[in-house]
Computed example of a mutant assay.
Amino acid sequence: MLYRAEGIVIRSMDYGEGNKIITLCTKESGKVGVLVRGAKKVKSRHAALTQLFTYGEYVFFRNGTGLGNLNAGEIMESHHRLREDLVKAAYASYACELLDRVLQDEETGAFWFHQLKACMEALQEDKDPQIIINLYEMKILQAAGYGPELDVCISCNQTRKDEDMLVSPRLGGVLCRYCKHLDPPAMSVTPRTLKLLRLFGRLDLRRLGNVDVKDETKAELKTVMRALMDMQLGLRLKSQNFLDQMDKYNI
């Protein structure tokens, strides 16, 4: 059967002597694997369609739920600026690998596609990459069913002052100081960081404007989101290790 789908390349790997297999996050069919024959050859007309981060329209033959075979394609946005910038490429790679690991094959829903597309566009527009990725991570957590409870204490269900709230990555939400004994390692956060986390919970990435966040707040935000991601999803990503190395050497 012939399929036509808008998709973003989230993974690209060599296959055999001259071919590539790409994984697309598509708007219509979720995550799809497609074989691109001859993509490694110098004169291949499909080579550009296999590059990571490429957004395009892909036409492929597919029987059942197996691997598709590319027939034709058209690039709608190459996102070459992401591949040419080390920092942007690192964050974009993390966004793609994270989605690849969380999104199951054939899991439909345009939400994943739209959030990834918005993430790529925001990175290319020179918005703060850490803020973009932290917001993207929040959307991933929510879509996967692990969105944190940030408005009321996850234990006693009471609304407290922000100054009396901590974040419990293990319990998946905020914990008031009266319930801290349930999770002693719960993290103290400033009211400013807690407000940003709530904003991330409500905001769609497609509506992200230019956000100016103080360095100390960004550092706290990054620590909290990393803890939530590690505890709730427990993924070990190569791209995350590279981002950690970038931080270590202040790249």
Rank of each mutant, 00 (worst) to 15 (best):
M187P: 00
L49Y: 02
D204F: 05
Q158R: 14
L49T: 06
V152E: 15
P129Q: 04
T108S: 12
F53I: 02
G172F: 04
R62N: 05
S188G: 11
L135S: 12
P129E: 02
G38W: 04
K218E: 08
I75D: 07
S12L: 00
L2F: 06
C176D: 09
V34E: 03
S155C: 10
L52S: 03
D85Q: 05
I21Y: 06
G18V: 06
G201A: 05
V189L: 11
V102L: 10
S168K: 07
I21K: 02
M1D: 12
V189M: 08
N69H: 13
V167S: 05
E137P: 10
G73Q: 08
G209D: 14
P184Q: 05
K238R: 15
T193V: 15
Y15F: 15
M120F: 13
F113S: 03
S12Q: 01
A122D: 11
R160E: 14
P191I: 06
D126Q: 11
I132P: 10
L123R: 08
R192T: 15
D85V: 00
E97K: 08
E17C: 01
A72D: 15
R198T: 09
E84H: 10
N210E: 15
L116D: 11
G38M: 08
E137N: 14
N157L: 08
R160L: 13
A90L: 05
A144Q: 11
V32Y: 02
K180C: 00
A39E: 10
K180W: 05
Q232M: 09
R45S: 13
K222N: 13
G66F: 08
E97R: 07
T193H: 01
A90E: 01
N19R: 02
L228N: 04
D126V: 06
V211A: 13
Q245F: 15
A95H: 01
E28M: 01
T159Y: 12
G30Y: 06
L116G: 09
I140R: 11
S239D: 08
E163G: 01
C153V: 05
H181C: 00
Q158P: 00
T190Y: 03
L82E: 07
R83F: 03
L221A: 04
M231C: 11
V36K: 03
Q130Y: 12
I22D: 07
K43T: 10
S12E: 10
D247G: 12
K40H: 01
D151P: 00
G109E: 04
L208M: 15
F53V: 02
V36H: 03
D151Q: 14
L98D: 10
I8V: 14
L2D: 14
D85R: 09
L196I: 15
M229R: 09
E137I: 01
A110V: 12
Y94E: 08
A143Q: 15
K41N: 11
